[in-house]
Design a protein around this nucleic acid. Structure first.
Lengths: 336, 336
DNA sequence: TTGTAAGCGTTATCAG
DNA sequence: CTGATAACGCTTACAA
């Protein structure tokens, strides 16, 4: 194992010079620095993690708590984990995983043992118990998602309410007066927060526009095609020709299938907007207007806030909402 | 921050006594031990991670490398990650995530910096570049999955070949002479190893039994229902009444739908065996005979091997295959 | 059964 | 611009 001493000796300098040269925390003459860097590279030197933690009081590790519940949508979840890992790594941090049981105990443990520099919270529930823990520990914590009581917490999330507004506005512009919202699964509206926020945004804006809104939750299981079909069928039966879809890939496909069966062409006879989808809607049978949920945006911001906090900048304990973007794919019928 | 010194003072003993009492690495009289434990609990003491690493030369962290490719089946993957995390935690280890790009560089980095005690490798590809790295670093490494050249590596996996045998044997016993294997996606057979192993097991055993085997890959996308339908339809058309399914949830459902449409009752008119499914097949429309792939088994064993290695026991660098189990649900027609 | 003390490999604070 | 050197908090021989 190569130590800083060996690098120092090889470069003919003291260990402190090596440390400073490599961390850049104080000016080192160009020629000695390059000499040190060469020695370090040649010897394959990598600072010992434990020693660095102890002396530097910085671990370069972030904890990521994720209570993998049975009802979490795996692909979306994976996208968030990946985005977080990439963002963290880019700033020089590794990700330590804290799952379910450990989510709460784990937070306390890693905080008490100084195992991590900051904690990132994923898959936030309305009554999330991790909120209380975040307030108690002194390890900086950033929520990706928003609990019911975000008081004193630093939170990051897409502005789902604004996303709802955008979707309704667009449909209203196109002259629609009747809209169906094809939402998330039943359980999501209880166990999560964001579906409600989108729903609320849609509702208030529908009211503003005098739009008749009907919102349907998709069945218990995500593979429950029948529930989606019947929701779509009855929407069409009552004359709705505008849909906002806030659901997984397959729900979109099922809706498009039903519309096709009825001989309705998307963008002409009927309008469809996909709201807060975390998958690529351009691969759907019919490309849809989309207000995407980009995990990378939330995760980048969350990591950035954590890093800024660690660098001593003031990070307000408040909700940081990411403004939604509307991507056009001509799936909304022009004003009639 | 509570240190070991404060605990020692509170308990009226020396710090080494505290250390030994808490680690159990040498006998401490009952009354002083309980006194120490109480003090530690009262003060909320948790050993400093960095100090522990440095002094003990053990980090209590395992790295988990997972090259989250676009074609990885998210739910299955999540099950493996969760199972690994739980198994590791139970042995006192945390999981550090190493994703894609970092998979290779990350392995070298965490090994060189002594950030982890061992490395667990997930989602193993046939020509996995992590095999070479595992051989090079001195950090013990366990593969969950098997690369083409497992020489010198410690690997753990379900015995997919034996699973193939079991499935065919059962169908042969029931008197079937024509079998269709509904396999994984096209790409899986190139990017992964296990589908081929199951296929091979099925093929050799079919040959032994004189069974006419037809194997079909399911379409490129996992949502490609059409491909599954047509595969099932043509199997029925050529008279096959026995199916082995090695695929995701929805492929099973599609097959069952097609069989139902043809008025064929599973377990009577037609036989279906699910092989190496990592989801709960009991929630399918029709429960199926299943040879399950239990992530927990592989992950428990992998963690166990890593821990044993760290404890100084000899761990053979070889393939550790987990024998498959056959779960009956009466979806195979009795001998005719 | 318990205490003493020597590291572990960095970082950061002094000097120079 | 560079060098000594004192922490950092714990583990673990070595003593008692």
């Amino acid at each position: 194992m190569t130590t800083i001493h060996e690098v120092a000796e090889a470069a003919g300098v003291s260990i402190s010079t090596v440390s400073y040269a490599l961390s850049g925390k104080r000016p080192i003459s160009d020629k000695t620095r390059t000499r040190i860097e060469k020695a370090a590279r040649d010897l394959g030197y990598e600072p010992d993690a434990g020693a660095r933690m102890l002396a530097g009081r910085r671990t370069h590790i972030f904890a990521l708590t994720e209570p993998l519940r049975a009802d979490t949508h795996a692909p979306t979840h994976m996208a968030f984990v990946l985005a977080t890992a990439v963002a963290a790594r880019r700033r020089g941090y590794d990700i330590l995983l804290l799952t379910d049981e450990q989510a709460s105990d784990g937070m306390n443990r890693v905080a008490a043992s100084n195992l991590v520099d900051a904690i990132l919270v994923l898959d936030v529930a309305p009554d999330d118990e991790r909120a209380a823990i975040a307030r108690a520990v002194r390890t900086p914590t950033v929520f990706i998602g928003i609990p019911d009581d975000p008081d004193g917490l630093t939170c990051v999330d897409l502005d789902f309410e604004a996303a709802g507004h955008l979707a309704v506005d667009r449909l209203a512009d196109a002259g629609h007066t009747r809209v169906t919202l094809l939402g998330q699964t039943e359980v999501s509206y209880r166990k999560s927060n964001f579906p409600r926020r989108l729903l609320h945004g849609v509702q208030t804006r529908a009211l503003d526009h005098g739009i008749a809104l009907r919102s349907e939750t998709t069945g218990a299981s995500s593979t429950d095609t029948a529930a989606v079909r019947s929701a779509a069928e009855s929407a069409l039966a009552r004359g709705d020709r505008a849909f906002i879809v806030h659901a997984a890939n397959d729900v979109h496909e099922t809706l498009l299938t039903v519309l096709d069966e009825h001989g309705l062409r998307v963008g002409t006879d009927v309008s469809v907007v996909s709201a807060a989808a975390s998958f690529d809607t351009s691969t759907l049978t019919v490309p849809l207007d989309t207000i995407p949920l980009v995990p990378q945006q939330s995760c980048d911001l969350a990591v950035d806030l954590a890093v800024r906090h660690l660098e001593g900048h003031r990070v307000p304990a408040q909700i940081h909402l990411i403004p939604p973007e509307y991507h056009i794919a001509d799936s909304v019928s022009p004003r009639r």
